[in-house]
């Protein structure tokens, strides 16, 4: 939970945005909270609210919500290697909370020498991030766009700074540095070309680029 608390401000800030976007799109407060609890993926929720405002039909809204979340498949695939001791029936519940933060923080934790059950670590991160997401959405619904700009600015910095520190501390060897550099450089332009897909495409491309010479 201590590790998860590092990204709580960013989660609250991002989901305040979700709450505001839901209000603007005319989503009922309970449904907006339900979307955070059930979908738990801010980019997908933003995309759904945005599409609905552009007169998207129901099936389109559902499709965009799912497609934006394709990255979770790769994240869960990676987490299976850390949770091999956890029965699948137990993971059926906890898989719902796979997010970029719970996945990356567990991944970086796996590279440390500390004797710590990674599944317990993952659940601790989830407890903090999921609570922050629900609270953030509620705040967004209640206060709307009245959040002080300086506070919102500061809160959004926690996630990128935190992942920068993890990268600096944990990246070892040419291939890992190469993958990180490719992700760093290619993600922004790819995000501009294909909004919502840039991180995923750049990351898979980086993985292929640094893996192929090995074979």
């Amino acid at each position: 939970m201590r590790a998860g608390s590092s990204v709580v401000p960013t989660f609250v800030a991002i989901f305040i945005g979700v709450g505001i976007a839901a209000e603007v799109a005319g989503v009922a407060p309970v449904t907006a909270l339900l979307s955070t609890a059930a979908v738990f993926a801010a980019p997908a929720q933003f995309a759904m609210f945005d599409l609905a405002m552009q007169d998207g039909v129901l099936l389109q809204v559902i499709s965009v919500g799912v497609l934006v979340n394709l990255r979770f498949f790769v994240m869960s695939l990676t987490l299976t290697t850390f949770f091999s001791h956890v029965p699948p029936s137990r993971m059926a519940c906890w898989a719902q909370f796979v997010s970029a933060s719970s996945y990356l923080m567990t991944f970086f934790q796996s590279r440390r020498d500390e004797r710590l059950d990674l599944f317990d670590f993952y659940r601790g991160v989830i407890f903090m991030t999921f609570s922050a997401a629900v609270v953030g959405t509620a705040i967004g619904i209640v206060i709307g766009a009245r959040l002080p700009a300086l506070l919102a600015f500061g809160a959004t910095l926690f996630l990128p700074i935190y992942f920068s520190l993890l990268l600096v501390g944990e990246t070892r060897g040419r291939r890992e540095v190469g993958a990180a550099m490719i992700g760093l450089v290619l993600t922004p332009p790819l995000e501009l070309l294909l909004p919502g897909w840039g991180i995923f495409i750049a990351a898979v491309g980086a993985g292929i680029a640094v893996s192929v010479p090995k074979r």
Partner: peptide, 28 residues
């Protein structure tokens, strides 16, 4: 799929680094 995760663990770890880096550059 669990078996595939084990088989491609190295590839997936590189993807993880790239995702973390991508989140940073996108946010910045």
């Amino acid at each position: 799929l669990r078996e595939a995760g084990r088989k491609y663990a190295d590839f997936l770890s590189y993807v993880s680094f790239a995702i973390a880096a991508g989140i940073v550059s996108k946010a910045m």
